[in-house]
Nucleic acid binder design. Structure first.
Lengths: 225, 225
DNA sequence: CGATTTGCGTAAAGAACGCGTAAAAACGGC
DNA sequence: GCCGTTTTTACGCGTTCTTTACGCAAATCG
């Protein structure tokens, strides 16, 4: 299972220090020592935030920022370089925050929390989302329909969560497959069909004529609000 | 007219400095010298982001954070207090960033841009195109004619999108065939005819005498704006 | 000036596709 | 080894796409 936070730094000591801070906050972490590894881990579903050192052996970390943002990951740059120009460049490229080494682990953790708070909840605050009769708690991994608790499997929940986060929007097969099953399964539309059906059976009034989880033939699925 | 940015600081010199930075970035600003004023300005519609000094004469700025967040304003704390505990407290109370004085105005502006980018990107980027009575949303794969939703198939949509992207311009058979059907079907003009007809039936007032999807004999098609 | 060609619109039939559905096989945690 | 979950496979059905054919008008040509 992949962690929520990805720590990218070539020095093992730093990685350990950061990981300590992150785990103290109850979060899970992966580690990468170079740019190539970083991209591999960042692509894994479940990865939300990347703590990025700029001084990597194979590539300048700053080049990674656009790639990470394209994956919809939050990026906090964590580096010894404190030149203003560098900060501005990183932030303008899409970085969400910029912390200069040496840093305090408490402050880092606080900034990580800020970033995650934002990432997980567009209507700022709680991690409860509602779309129509369905309510979903992202932290508690619980789902209600008309106030009644519904039991979902992990995949079902992940799929519903992704659809709910972008309620009303059309999400492509590829997007859903990538976010929930990972890069290797972008073509496995069958997974999606089976999972969607399971959700419909549990959430729709009549699974045979859905009014909530809608299909856009050839494109993807959309959750109606 | 209220500005997008509210600068809260009891020192006029600081306010002027910050305002300079903000306006250099093409943004407008209001100023408040104490907590009471700050709340008044923050309540005004159009205010998106508050740059908040913590050392205010009437109240501790940190107490303002929850109020500002309740108004759904982005908050960047901008203060001389650099105690870690203070940073963590402010961030956990809902502040979006924390910048310690003395700060560099370029970095501040970059952080303001980051915050605004985020603030404005939640009601996500519609890329919608319009050509005459027809409006088309490329992300949502939806098309309206005179405000009324029209249902298109994939190929129809792709064709209309390509024509709309280059509205008014003449697109050759080969170009359209290549972009929608791929390299292998550059010669299959029949596809194009069938698809164009389907679009006309759905979008034109009278498909038999088109006024919107025009043919340029021997060359290609053009969408009239 | 009439015959022929060329390109377009139109219609309709068959093939291919995508989806829903079901159920069996493989997997993984306890 | 068992039970719930996930993956894999298969089939029917409706929709969409492709293919083919024909009529018509304008352009081309003898």
């Amino acid at each position: 299972m992949s962690g929520q936070i990805l720590i990218v730094d070539d020095e093992a000591a730093i990685r350990r220090l950061v990981r300590g801070a992150v785990e103290r906050g109850g979060l899970t972490a992966d580690e990468a020592a170079n740019a190539a590894e970083a991209l591999t881990y960042a692509r894994r579903p479940g990865c939300e935030l990347v703590l990025l050192d700029l001084g990597l052996p194979d590539r300048d970390g700053i080049e990674l920022i656009p790639h990470l943002k394209a994956l919809d990951r939050t990026v906090i740059v964590l580096t010894a370089r404190d030149a203003i120009a560098e900060k501005v460049a990183a932030l303008d490229l899409g970085a969400d925050d910029y912390v200069v080494k040496p840093f305090d682990t408490d402050e880092l953790l606080a900034r990580v929390r800020v970033a995650l708070r934002r990432h997980n909840s567009s209507p700022a605050g709680h991690d409860r989302l509602r779309a129509g009769a369905v309510e979903i708690d992202l932290n508690e991994h619980k789902v209600w329909r008309d106030g009644e608790l519904v039991k979902l499997t992990r995949k079902e929940f992940a799929l519903l969560a992704e659809l709910t986060r972008h309620a009303g929007k059309l999400l492509t097969h590829a997007h859903l497959l990538r976010t929930i099953w990972g890069d290797g399964h972008v073509e496995d539309v069958a997974y999606l069909r089976v999972a969607i059906r399971a959700l419909r059976l549990k959430l729709e009034v009549d699974a045979a004529s859905p009014s909530y989880l809608m299909n856009e033939p050839g494109i993807g699925y959309r959750l109606i609000v």
